[in-house]
Design a protein around this nucleic acid. Structure first.
Length: 577
RNA sequence: CGGGGUGUAGCUCAGCUUGGCUAGAGCGUCUGGUUUGGGACCAGAAGGCCGUAGGUUCGAAUCCUAUCACCCCGACCA
């Protein structure tokens, strides 16, 4: 491709609204432009990169036996109502009414549509397992789009859905996808980490996340020090802390006046105590049940862990529910005297480290002191569960090993869905034994744009992007350094020769000074640069330089093609190795 | 949704506090010339409804009100 005929609007200045390297560089290198908050137009170079990533994903998916399909981005609301996910997604799901008065959804994902297909077309165990995937735009009305393409509203996702007659078959496909994902991210030249994850809103029984560790990541990855276990913070278990000895302190309960102290911080400030002696009490609702969750004041409740402790989906109770329950303003709830009025009490292990704690008095502007777990509120019995329901923090251990924390970008996730969708959408089949059963499902997503962004986040320098060869917009850029006729002619020759040999080449044929071309070549991050200048041309040579290295090699013009083919092969082997 | 911030040339930003001359700079663009291996130089030029709508005033980019857009922080810690 010729630079002079391609729209590559590079910019020198840092864009005002870009904070992280990938966002800045994607704008500066002319890969994309913002249209509105969280939506971007991909320009020729950016789109080439995305297509290269999609082609890697496509070839690996096809090789693993998945079949590509295409589903609509506008989907009927009815399907989402059948699974109830219109409620789960809430305002993140964009929807509109069409001219016939029907509600439509801008697809944030496609479980409903694909399961609907399965319901119609899969009737027998003989048709399974089957794995259907698509690569398409998704729309999620994020409450706060940010970091360029890392959290955008519209993005490209590869989403695959597998259907099975039983769990065992699902396990097999899940394993195949897991291995396929490893190959995909390796081929994209990324260093990834695989962590155990919660299946969250998706429902299901098992999940792994593929993340790219880097500073700009929004996910927190927790690993044991020896690396033998890794999980997302939403899942990461912690060892229970040693409980306090009971009965050492037995002061009676004491009510204290604590006006306007609604937060843990305010209470600590007011009573001059450490947050470790506070028992934080949060009221949740789960369907019709009221659940009280307790955690030590210096920890955070982990809603995913709480959900699995309760066994049902939960949400924070609204203000009125709390007022009715506690007869107090929000901010003064506590377990003492409340256990009869709730359906479930979930106590984090950390609460048992408290020998005499402070908690809300269920009375506006009052707390109680000297609260002894087990004496002043029950810690065992029916509907009382002591569990791990808090977020891991530095200093925690798991299986006796210290936990370390890293940030990462989630680029892919695999889920075992089970029968959540097939049951609700009536995707049933006749099994060998003649009985009707819901299909067992798995689903597997990859964020295409995030692969591009995380590649940049992990591979760039002060001059620009450094693409791994497999997802680079071009493999080679030819820079004629000068306008002399022989330089142009030699450049054109090499361009033709390489293009015919199947190499992806960008020829910088612009009427610009050398410096400008070098700067742009570095910014674009094309892995191999060929420079043709008067000096080396006099010796019938051209220069070859790798973007990631500083060293320049002079090569005879007649050897350029073989040399480049060799370098490309080596760079590719490096990645697959 | 709560808090903070910003909207002035294609881009990055001054000017606004304390209202008043023709609204500026750098980069980019166009013309001519000199240059030509790491974002060149000289001379000239084009380019603005100062986000939008009201208001105050003799007079508004500047003050007031509303509204929209964008960015940052937070949004389960009661």
């Amino acid at each position: 491709m010729r630079y002079s005929k391609t729209l590559i609007p590079t910019v020198k200045e840092l864009p005002a609204d870009a904070e992280i390297p990938s966002h800045q560089l994607m704008i500066r290198a002319g890969l994309m432009r913002k249209v509105a908050s969280g939506t971007y137009t991909y320009l020729p170079i950016g789109w080439r990169i995305l297509m290269k990533i999609m082609n890697i994903v496509r070839s690996e998916m096809n090789n693993s036996g998945a079949q590509e399909i295409l589903m609509p981005s506008v989907q009927p609301m009815e399907l989402w109502q059948q699974t109830g996910r219109n409620v789960d997604y809430g305002p993140t799901m964009a929807h509109f009414t069409d001219r016939h008065g029907r509600e439509n959804v801008l697809a944030p994902t496609a479980e409903e549509v694909v399961t609907n297909i399965a319901a119609g077309e899969i009737n027998s165990y003989k048709q399974m397992p089957i794995n259907l995937y698509q690569i398409s735009f998704k729309f999620r009305d994020e409450f706060r789009p940010r970091f360029g393409v890392l959290r955008s509203r519209e993005f490209i996702m590869k989403d695959a859905y597998s259907f099975h007659a039983d769990e065992k078959s699902l396990d097999q496909t899940y394993r195949i996808m897991y291995e396929t994902y490893k190959r995909i991210f390796s081929r994209c030249g990324l260093k990834y980490a695989i962590v155990e994850a919660e299946s969250g809103e998706m429902g299901g029984t098992g999940s792994h996340q593929f993340t790219i560790p880097c500073e700009s990541g929004e996910d927190v990855i927790v690993q044991t020090e020896d690396g033998s276990y890794a999980a997302n913070i939403e899942k990461a278990p912690v060892d229970a802390l040693l409980p306090a000895e009971r009965g050492k302190i037995c002061k009676p309960l004491e009510e204290v006046h604590t006006p306007n102290t609604k937060t843990i911080g305010e209470i600590c400030e007011f009573l001059k105590v450490d947050s470790k002696s506070l028992i934080k009490s949060l009221v949740y609702k789960s369907e019709m049940d009221i659940v009280l969750a307790l955690v030590r004041g210096d920890y955070d409740i982990n809603p995913e862990k709480l959900r699995s402790a309760v066994g049902k989906s939960i949400e924070l109770a609204d203000e009125n529910t709390i007022k009715n329950l506690t007869d107090a303003e929000v901010g003064f709830a506590g377990p003492v005297g409340l256990t009869q009025k709730i359906n479930k009490l979930i106590i984090d292990h950390s609460v048992l480290t408290i020998d005499a704690g402070i908690t809300g008095a269920n009375k506006t502007d009052y707390h109680i002191k000297n609260v002894v777990p087990g004496r002043d509120f029950p810690i065992e019995g029916k509907n009382i569960i002591v569990a791990d329901i808090r977020n891991a923090v530095p200093g925690d251990t798991y299986l006796g090993k210290k936990l370390v924390f890293k940030k990462g970008i989630e680029v892919g996730q695999v889920f075992k869905l089970g029968t959540k969708y097939s049951a609700k959408l009536n995707a049933k089949f006749l099994d060998k034994d003649g009985t009707e059963k819901p299909c067992v499902m798995g689903c597997y997503g990859i964020g295409i744009n995030r692969i591009a962004a995380s590649a940049i986040e992990t591979m760039y320098d002060k001059d620009g992007i450094i693409w791994p060869i497999n997802i680079a917009p071009f493999e080679v850029i030819i820079v004629p350094a000068g306008n002399a006729a022989e330089i142009i002619a030699a450049s054109e020759n090499i361009y033709k020769e390489l293009t015919h040999a199947g190499v992806e080449v960008l020829l910088d044929d612009r009427d610009e000074r050398g410096g400008v071309k070098f700067k742009d070549a570095d910014l674009l991050g094309i892995p191999i640069r060929i420079t043709i200048g008067a000096k080396s041309l006099a010796e019938a040579k051209a220069e070859i330089k790798l973007r990631r290295e500083t060293e320049i090699t002079k090569v005879d013009l007649s050897q350029i093609k073989d040399n480049i083919l060799n370098i490309i092969e080596n760079l590719k082997n490096e990645i697959s190795a």
